[in-house]
């Protein structure tokens, strides 16, 4: 918040900095902390949403797998609604639409609800393909050695399904982190918000955008590399395909 104050105090310093290739190097030092805070906020919200999405997704996948009556159709409706509408519209509806009907959530809650609503269906699809890849033979063998349904799930189905679903889960996690870039519409100060605010207040567009790009590379590249690594491992461990 003290952002603007410091701008005017250090104006002279900035002008010296601009000499080099038209880029304002002091800008980076000064505003990098804002981006850092923005990134922390985004990762924080993403982390909570990822955990909730995995829980929602697992529940939905199991309901679908066991064909639970009544619940299965509602899960299908949820998945279709979530997969066929944009997150931005969901956010606007949650944040600006619902309060008109007397239901009001704070910015953070809106963000987490919307991201979980979106992520839950993606995670559910990932788990579902994992579950469906377990052959009938394995289930029958499990039953024949005397495992009950829960044991079968716990020791035979889930470990394999999870390994197979892992790359998709990883891709979904990255997807959800990227989607946090639109949280500025519900007044959350994520990196995108910081960049827009800086552009609006002092028009240092080049520098603001460069820092934005760097922030996202730092946030996502390591995860993306880990994911590529996991993908390779799982492919080696794959069987029956």
């Amino acid at each position: 918040m003290t952002l603007f104050l410091s701008v005017s105090n250090q104006m002279d310093l900035i002008n010296e900095g601009t000499i080099l290739i038209g880029m304002d190097y002091l800008f980076f030092a000064k505003y990098a902390p804002l981006y850092y805070e923005g990134a922390l906020l985004a990762l924080n919200i993403a982390a909570i949403s990822v955990i909730l999405s995995i829980m929602v997704g697992l529940c939905c996948a199991c309901i679908h797998y066991y064909k639970v009556p009544l619940l299965k159709p509602s899960v299908s409706i949820y998945i279709e609604l979530s997969r066929n509408t944009p997150l931005l519209v969901q956010l606007f509806f949650l944040y600006f639409g619902l309060p008109k009907m007397g239901i009001r959530f704070e910015s953070e809650s809106c963000a987490i609800i919307a991201l979980t609503f979106l992520g839950g269906s993606y995670m559910s699809e990932a788990f579902r393909s994992g579950l469906e890849s377990i052959g009938k033979l394995q289930l029958e063998s499990g039953l024949s050695i005397g495992l009950n349904k829960i044991q079968l799930m716990r020791y035979v189905v889930l470990p394999q399904a999870f390994a197979i679903a892992l790359p998709a889960i990883g891709a979904n996690i990255i997807f959800l982190i990227k989607e946090t870039s639109m949280l500025s519409v519900v007044a959350l100060e994520d990196p995108m918000f910081v960049a827009k605010d800086l552009i609006g207040m002092n028009s240092d567009t080049k520098e603001a955008l460069l820092l934005l790009v760097v922030t996202y590379i730092v946030m996502i590249l390591p995860l993306s590399l880990i994911l590529t690594f996991i993908e390779k491992k799982v492919r080696h461990a794959g069987y029956g395909h």
Partner: peptide, 14 residues
């Protein structure tokens, strides 16, 4: 890696 919103800003303003 890049969110689409970031790309849009890069191309439109950057």
């Amino acid at each position: 890696i890049m969110p689409i919103l970031v790309l849009l800003f890069l191309f439109y303003f950057g």
